[in-house]
């Protein structure tokens, strides 16, 4: 009983803290690329995510204004919305997007900043990202920032006042997994703000590896929405994030070249 209690209290004390708010889930999910809103809802529920990213786009004028919207199926009272600047290729576009999102979501200031460099790689444009981050922070936004896996830039973004730094594991939507675990590790070791892997995860083991490196969380969309069974993959990702986190907290054994028997040698009768 007491061990059950202590496990429960340990779990409670392991919340993810972003900008002073506590989250029990370390999996953040995007809401794009699903078949329909119902599949979006089911996948987000199966993922256990509490923070969901959304895009800000033009309203379709004259079309189906009575159709349910994302805000109907994922109520903002229940989920923390993370408007993101996906699709922006300049600091100016990203800043305008965040200002519109703040107005749309009644003064909500937590945003995901992403300024892209080119369409082939979707790598971040770091010069534009730094410029946008400075403007947004000065305007009172709480910025979670997508960046590459460069430890120097990650630290710079933290020092500017970003509330979380989110290096890519691999190109957006590539599913290649963690391409540079050593850099991700270095970014984590240097950081005082949460570090979340954002982009590149392809399957549940990739998510677990990110967490075993010591990441505070993982943000993904395509790996779930693009799976053959998105709702099942969402459930797999939830477990992988939890397993990876516990594995990190538990502390892995050192790797050795040769075997080390797990049964005692004392008392053998042969």
């Amino acid at each position: 009983m007491s061990s059950v209690m202590s496990t429960a209290s340990a779990a409670n004390s392991d919340d993810l803290i972003i900008d002073g708010s506590a989250y029990q889930s370390r999996l953040l999910v995007g809401t794009g690329k699903y078949r329909d809103l119902e599949q979006t809802r089911l996948a987000v529920e199966a993922s256990g995510a509490q923070i969901v990213t959304v895009a800000i786009r033009r309203t379709n004028i004259g079309q189906h204004q009575d159709e349910p919207s994302l805000l109907d199926v994922l109520p903002p009272q229940r989920y923390t919305y993370l408007p993101n600047t996906a699709g922006c290729y300049s600091a100016e576009e990203a800043v305008r997007t965040c200002r519109l999102a703040r107005e749309l979501l009644d003064g909500h200031t937590l945003v995901k900043l992403e300024v892209l460099g080119d369409e082939k790689t979707l790598f971040p444009d770091i010069v534009q990202t730094l410029e946008a981050a400075a403007t947004l922070i000065a305007e009172g936004f709480r910025v979670m920032v997508y960046t590459n896996d460069d430890p120097i830039i990650a630290k710079r973004l933290e020092d500017m006042g970003c509330v979380a730094v989110m290096p890519l594991a691999a190109p957006i939507g590539s599913g290649l997994g963690i391409r540079n675990p050593h850099n991700i590790r270095t970014i984590i070791e240097n950081a005082k703000v949460p570090i979340l892997v954002d982009a590149g995860v392809g399957c549940a083991s990739d998510a677990a590896i990110a967490m075993e490196l010591g990441c505070d969380g993982v943000l993904m969309n395509t790996a779930i929405a693009g799976a053959r069974e998105p709702v099942l993959m969402a459930s797999a990702m939830k477990k992988a994030i939890e397993a990876g986190r516990e594995s990190w907290l538990a502390g892995r054994i050192p790797k050795k070249r040769f075997a080390s028997a797990s049964s005692p040698l004392d008392g053998t009768f042969f």
């Binding site: 953040l28 999910v29 995007g30 809401t31 794009g32 690329k33 699903y34 809103l37 979006t40 990213t53 959304v54 895009a55 800000i56 786009r57 033009r58 309203t59 004028i61 919207s69 994302l70 805000l71 919305y81 408007p83 993101n84 996906a86 519109l100 999102a101 749309l104 979501l105 957006i172 939507g173 954002d198 982009a199 590149g200 943000l219 993904m220 969309n221 395509t222």
Partner: peptide, 10 residues
């Protein structure tokens, strides 16, 4: 005139 729709994350 904009709204929130499903989007990345990646």
């Amino acid at each position: 005139i904009v709204r929130a729709i499903g989007g990345g994350g990646q």
